[in-house]
Design a binder for these strands. Structure first.
Length: 571
RNA sequence: CGGGGUGUAGCGCAGUGGCUAGCGCACCUGCUUUGGGAGCAGGGGGCCGACGGUUCAAGUCCGUCCACCCCGACCA
């Protein structure tokens, strides 16, 4: 491709709306342009990257035996009602009505539609297992779209769904996809980590996320410094030592704590460490109030709490609800004698803890010397806290660290959630009917591009991994007025095309500085400069990643570039 | 949804209530320049987010709405 014909406009200044490097660079390099919040045009350069990523995904999915299909973006409300997700998915589901008033969803994911395909197609065990996938646009009305295509309302996703006759088959399908995903992300040149994850609104029994490690990632990951344990913070479990187990329990007594309603204020006032406090949070869960008691220095993990309660909606109770439930204003709730809630859940950080300080369920009052089991009876003791760096690994008890990541893939074991709700059944050898056992597997194609930039850039611009670069080589004649250089660039450009190398010829009538800056900004892995060396039939070859420069003779250039491409692609 | 911020040329930004709304970049023409975002000269491009109000006079003040960005979404 000739640069002058690509409608490729770069800009010098960062757009004011872009915060993170990938967003800034994608806009500056002319890859994307914002249409509205969370909606982007993919311009020619950006779209080439998407197609590169799609192609890698497609090749690996095909190699894994999956079948590509295409489902409609619109799906009828009835299907979503069958599984209950029409109401459960909430405001994130884009809904529209047709001219007759019939309701549709813009697909955020396609479990319902794929299950409908299978229930209408699969009748016999002989047709199983099957794994169907598609690559197209998904719609999610995100609370807050941000970071460019990283969290957009419309994005490109590969979604795959496996159907098996039993758990053993489903397990194998899951493992196959897990391995396939590792290959895909490796081929895309990403540094990533697979972590245990919560299944969220997709459901199912177990899931793993593939995280690209980056400071700007929206997800927090806990991982073990010794073994291979790694989990999303939503799911991660950390062990911690119990508080002073050898201390003898003292008598519980009320103390006056006027105006002290945060844990920090109470700890300071009573001169005890914050970890000695047990805070009591009152949640409103589907109209019922639930108390959660947790160590003062710890945070409740609402995903864990939701899962423990089987709840869909979870909000902290308002001041009136708290007053009604505890008899005290906000800040003085405690578990002892607490009558106004349905359940008292205690985080296991307080298991065997002694002599705690809690709220007194009376204004300006706290209780000291509180001992769980003696002074109050939790309904359940559960792990409900967020892991912190320094907690201990649940598998091997080594220290856990926290990192940040960008979720680029997620694989789920779904079980029979959808096949049962939508009656996707088959007959076995004995003529007996069974539900299909499902798995589902997503990859954020557009997010991979952003994640790759987040991991691979410098102050000059993008540094594409070769496999997903929009072009592999940029040819740069330094002076348009130098006919020998221009001519040689044209010849080499033709040779590149003949050799199957994707080349971009910078044929613009621009000064050298502009061309060099743009070559760096757009991040094309190999740059060929036709300048001073041309008189001696030499071409300068520079790698964008290492910055290494070498002079290559005119006769060897095609072979050299071809070999370097193969090396950089890891072939 | 709550809080904060911003809307002026394609992009980045100036602009005491007072003449025909500016600057840099980008764009077009010409001349010079030519290995790291050139110089000079000339030029094109604006519903100043929308609507309503105050005023002799509104980009500027007031109100309402809209869009976009950031933080938060309840940790007692």
């Amino acid at each position: 491709m000739r640069w002058s014909r690509t409608l490729l406009e770069t800009i010098k200044e960062n757009p004011s709306e872009a915060e993170v490097a990938s967003h800034q660079l994608m806009v500056r390099a002319g890859m994307i342009r914002k249409v509205a919040a969370g909606l982007y045009d993919y311009l020619p350069l950006g779209w080439r990257v998407m197609r590169k990523i799609e192609q890698i995904v497609r090749e690996e999915m095909d190699a894994a035996g999956a079948l590509e299909v295409q489902m409609p973006i619109l799906s009828p409300a009835e299907m979503w009602q069958e599984t209950g997700r029409w109401t459960q998915y909430g405001a994130e589901l884009f809904r529209i009505k047709d001219r007759h008033g019939r309701e549709f969803a813009l697909g955020p994911t396609h479990e319902e539609v794929i299950t409908d395909i299978v229930r209408r197609t699969v009748r016999s065990y002989r047709q199983l297992p099957v794994n169907l996938y598609q690559i197209h646009t998904k719609f999610r009305d995100e609370i807050r779209p941000r970071f460019g295509v990283m969290r957009a309302r419309e994005f490109i996703m590969k979604d795959a769904y496996s159907f098996d006759r039993d758990e053993i088959g489903a397990e194998a399908a899951y493992d196959k996809m897990f391995q396939t995903y590792q290959r895909i992300f490796q081929r895309c040149g990403l540094r990533f980590k697979a972590v245990e994850a919560d299944s969220g609104s997709i459901g199912g029994s177990f899931s793993s996320e593939f995280m690209v490690l980056a400071e700007t990632g929206e997800e927090a990951i806990a991982s073990c410094t010794q073994c291979n344990y790694a989990a999303n913070i939503e799911k991660a479990v950390g062990k911690l030592p119990v508080i002073s187990p050898e201390e003898t329990p003292i008598t519980m007594e009320m103390v006056s704590t006027p105006g002290k309603h945060t844990v920090e204020e109470v700890a300071e006032f009573l001169q005890v460490p914050i970890s000695r406090l047990a805070k009591t949070l009152i949640y409103a869960v589907d109209k019922i109030l639930v108390a959660v008691v947790i160590r003062g220095d710890r945070e409740v993990n609402e995903v864990k709490l939701k899962n423990a309660l089987g709840a869909q909606e979870l909000v902290l109770a308002g001041p009136e609800q708290i007053q009604a439930a505890t008899g005290a204003p906000v800040g003085f709730a405690g578990p002892c004698g607490l009558q106004g809630v349905g359940r008292i859940l205690m985080d296991d950080s307080l298991h065997q803890a002694v002599n705690l300080v809690t709220g007194g369920n009376r204004a300006d009052t706290h209780a000291q010397g509180v001992n769980p089991g003696r002074d109050f009876q939790p309904t359940q003791i559960l792990d409900l806290k967020n892991v912190r760096a320094g907690d201990l690994c649940p598998k091997c008890s080594a220290v856990l660290t926290l990192e940040r990541g960008i979720e680029v893939g997620h694989v789920f074991k779904l079980g029979m959630k959808y096949s049962r709700a939508m009656r996707a059944v088959f007959l076995d050898e004995g003529g007996e009917e069974h539900f299909c056992v499902m798995g589902c597997y997503g990859i954020g194609v557009s997010r991979i591009a952003a994640a790759a930039i987040e991991q691979n850039h410098d102050e000059h611009g993008i540094i594409w991994p070769l496999a997903i670069a929009p072009y592999q080589v940029v040819l740069l004649p330094v002076s348009p007025k130098d006919p020998r250089a221009a001519e040689m660039a044209e010849e080499v450009y033709a040779e590149m095309q003949a050799a199957g190398v994707e080349a971009l010829l910078d044929d613009r009538d621009e000064r050298a500085g502009i061309k060099f800056k743009d070559a760096d900004l757009t991040g094309i892995p190999i740059r060929l400069t036709f300048g001073r060396g041309v008189a001696e039939n030499m071409i300068e070859l520079k790698r964008r990643d290492t910055g290494a420069v070498e002079m290559v003779s005119r006769t060897e250039i095609a072979a050299r570039v071809k070999a370097l491409c193969e090396k950089m692609a890891g072939l």
